[in-house]
């Protein structure tokens, strides 16, 4: 007797198909979120005008910069300090085999400024700020607050999205510079305490590595990282706003929107990072 209570054996093929479709589902949803994000980005750019300088808007912007940026400084400092130490340790041990520890300063500083600084900051902001933004706007969406803005004919993009995007576009680069500095310092601690590199040598190597061409008064490598950070900041805020504002179905929907926002922005950040790195090596040859 084949009763329905008996669990059906899960065929390997069926299981693979299930995993396959869920992968496709994830990718499809992320593409969907990205599409909404692009539309929202265009709407946001259209609204970057003198009204941003109104007193109430500036206050709103300052609040967002505080919540999104200033409050993240401690975690950015801690993570980048450890990443700097790890970078130094990892490369130092390898370089030591060839008697080349002198180069630690060069490698740590360039890696921090070009790659690690912006990426660490971006991922921390996705987790700490992007998720909070998505949940905040998601809660507004499920409790009629966005509809209330529409009915009052308050432009929700101007009122909610513009300050959040501008705040993240400003704060992500600032936090990245902090991460660069702290990471390089973390690297120097390991280099001098554990790998026998003298402090002045590390410092000289760092300065040498970062000297040279400058863009907008920044050393080239720092500029590359800051530009990435700017793009990451905009991406995180836009994705969070776009997914949050489309949340439906109460608390559960807010949770789902938050999860989607984190997933989509991490994906976008690593992809954009790869594209930008490729572009800079193409455009700004060593």
């Amino acid at each position: 007797m084949s009763s329905t209570a008996e669990p059906a054996p899960v065929g390997a093929l069926a299981e693979t198909a299930r995993v396959g479709t869920s992968w496709i589902g994830h990718i499809r949803r992320s593409l969907d979120d990205t599409g909404h994000g692009v539309a929202l980005l265009l709407a946001t750019i259209q609204r970057l005008d003198h009204k941003l300088l109104k007193r109430s808007n500036l206050r709103n912007l300052a609040d967002q910069m505080y919540a999104g940026g200033i409050l993240s400084i401690p975690i950015v400092v801690l993570v980048s300090f450890f990443m700097g130490m790890v970078l130094s340790l990892q490369t130092g041990v390898e370089l030591g085999k060839f008697g080349q520890q002198d180069l630690i300063g060069t490698i740590v500083s360039v890696a921090m400024c070009r790659e690690m600084g912006p990426l660490i900051t971006g991922i921390i902001l996705v987790a700490a700020v992007g998720s909070a933004l998505a949940a905040e706007l998601g809660t507004m969406s499920v409790s009629d607050e966005l509809i209330a803005l529409d009915v009052m004919t308050v432009d929700r993009t101007r009122f909610l999205v513009v300050p959040r995007v501008v705040a993240m576009a400003l704060m992500c680069p600032i936090l990245t510079i902090i991460a660069d500095i702290v990471g390089i310092f973390g690297g120097s601690v390991i280099a001098t305490e554990r790998l026998g590199v003298s402090g002045p040598l590390y410092t000289n190597r760092t300065i040498e590595a970062l000297r040279g061409e400058t863009f907008l008064t920044m050393p080239k490598d720092v500029f590359v990282g800051v530009l990435k950070a700017f793009v990451f900041g905009v991406t995180i805020a836009i994705v969070a706003c776009a997914t949050g504002m489309r949340a439906t179905n109460g608390a559960q929907g807010v949770g789902e929107a938050t999860r989607r926002s984190v997933r989509t922005s991490i994906l976008l950040i690593v992809i954009i990072n790869y594209i930008l790195t490729g572009m800079f090596f193409g455009l700004l040859p060593e």
């Binding site: 609040d63 009629d144 607050e145 209330a148 803005l149 009052m152 432009d155």
Partner: peptide
Amino acid sequence: GGALVNWLNVYDNVALPLREA
């Protein structure tokens, strides 16, 4: 449910449509 903006105080909530719209 009121649908107030939760980070604005009472005054600013009431002022919202006058300022933004």
